[in-house]
């Protein structure tokens, strides 16, 4: 579903991603871990072209992402993204946050969009909040709305950029539960995370990035118990 070949990203002279090649198959849940500044988020943001790669190719469902700027918003419609700081639209109600993009970008009728949005709100356990504005929600609730908002576009792939890092500890679980549920439903997911528990339990594969290099990848059981590289060992010693 995703195929990344020789991806490089530079900010000025600073090389943030260096020769990354990997792929993700349909239904797979991939966790990207690594120290801060390792390029995890930049890599994820390249996957829907919020960052434009310096060189290399990214294919999503066989379509080259970097080839055309014109079709990019069509491709983005199939890729949901969840941000660390939620980025809900503060001037819209929760329900409007969910219906806005389907109506504007896909031309879905209001009644249909609202019906689907209500189902999604039920799924993330926030049915009673549909008329609330984002500023009145807790961090965990905001993130669940943000996940529902991304799902409202019925994407084939979901990207998560440290979705629990900005949350108070007691709210992490409610968000992870929604994500686990989503993984079970067969959604293809790429998750940048500091939650090693999530990576171990839910992910099918773990990618370990350090200094912009894909140092190691493998199944979580393997990776967490027998990391192959020194750098991964070092990192795991510090976080576990």
């Amino acid at each position: 579903m995703i195929n990344v070949q020789n991806l490089y990203k530079k900010f000025g002279t600073n090389e943030v991603l260096s020769d990354i090649s990997t792929s993700v198959t349909k239904g797979e849940v991939v966790s990207i871990i690594g120290p801060s500044g390792s390029g995890k988020s930049t890599f994820l943001r390249c996957l829907n072209l919020l960052e434009v790669p310096t060189s290399g190719t990214i294919e999503i469902n066989g379509k080259n992402l970097t080839a055309s700027k014109k079709t990019i918003h069509k491709i983005r419609q199939q890729i949901g993204m969840v941000f660390q700081h939620f980025h809900l639209f503060p001037h819209l109600t929760v329900l409007e946050n969910l219906t806005y993009a389907p109506m504007k970008a896909k031309g879905i009728k209001k009644a249909e969009a609202e019906m689907k949005a209500r189902l999604l709100l039920e799924r993330v356990g926030l049915s009673e909040k549909e008329k609330a504005y984002p500023n009145s929600l807790s961090g965990g609730q905001k993130q669940r709305v943000a996940i529902a908002r991304a799902l409202a576009m019925e994407p084939e792939l979901m990207l998560f950029d440290e979705p629990t890092s900005a949350l108070d500890p007691e709210m992490v679980k409610e968000v992870l539960d929604v994500m686990k549920d989503l993984a079970k439903s067969g959604m293809t997911m790429v998750v940048v995370t500091h939650e090693m528990g999530f990576a171990r339990e839910v992910a099918d594969r773990v990618l370990f990035l350090d200094h912009g290099v894909l140092v190691e990848e493998g199944q979580p059981i393997e990776f967490f118990s027998h990391p192959k590289t020194e750098r991964a060992k070092d990192f795991l010693d510090k976080v576990l």
């Binding site: 919020l50 983005r76 941000f83 806005y100 504007k104 970008a105 991304a150």
Partner: peptide, 24 residues
């Protein structure tokens, strides 16, 4: 982040400016 969220949802530039950015 507001612009990025709208872009990530595949909202075209015009609509994003009119409905998301300018009102804020």
């Amino acid at each position: 982040g507001q612009m990025e969220a709208a872009q990530a949802l595949g909202v075209p530039y015009r609509a994003m400016m009119k409905d998301i950015i300018l009102p804020q």
